[in-house]
């Protein structure tokens, strides 16, 4: 069943019917399987990768290194729970190395991001320091290269 998950991870637009054709299964069985994955939280959700740089939308992304003092009864989880409640937070990872939490946030302007870090993130209890790195350009995300799609230049040779 990992194969079906992998196929969906690569392309969320595949329908149960298409997956059934690929893996020689009934469409209904694939639907049930996907429902089970969703209920169990194995499939967390579905999103579309968009290259916003090709649109007029103004946005800015930043990666923030957060150092914390872990809490006695919740470790890093309690702090993480507080941080990920903010809708501005796109991703949140517990890290090894020089800092504890890596927060990816998105805002309309650098000012908005800076305001969020200063007013929201840095003020959370047990957050001891933050370092903000703004993303200048996204080259690749989730295994996909951003830029112009290469045309199919394969020659009809044989």
């Amino acid at each position: 069943m990992d194969k079906i998950l992998k196929a969906l991870e690569d392309d969320a637009t595949l329908t149960p019917e298409q997956l059934g054709m690929m893996f020689s299964k009934e469409t209904g069985d694939i639907k049930k399987l996907i429902e089970t994955y969703e209920k169990e939280g194995i499939i967390v959700g579905y999103k579309t990768l968009i290259d916003w740089d090709k649109t007029d939308r103004e946005y800015v992304t930043a990666m923030i290194e957060v150092k914390t003092t872990p809490q006695r009864d919740g470790g890093f989880d309690k702090i993480a729970e507080k941080i990920y409640q903010y809708p501005e937070v796109q991703s949140l990872y517990l890290m090894s190395g020089g800092f504890d939490l890596c927060v990816l946030i998105e805002g309309r302007t650098m000012k908005e991001v800076a305001f969020f870090v200063a007013q929201k993130l840095a003020t959370i209890e047990n957050v001891t320091s933050t370092a903000t790195h703004f993303v200048l350009r996204k080259y690749k995300d989730k295994g996909l290269v951003y830029g112009y799609a290469e045309p199919d230049e394969r020659g009809n040779c044989n």
Binding site: K3, A7, Q18, G20, M21, M22, F23, S24
Partner: peptide, 10 residues
């Protein structure tokens, strides 16, 4: 192989 199944069934 996935595509083979897919196109055969299609």
């Amino acid at each position: 192989d996935r595509r083979r199944h897919y196109i055969y069934e299609g």
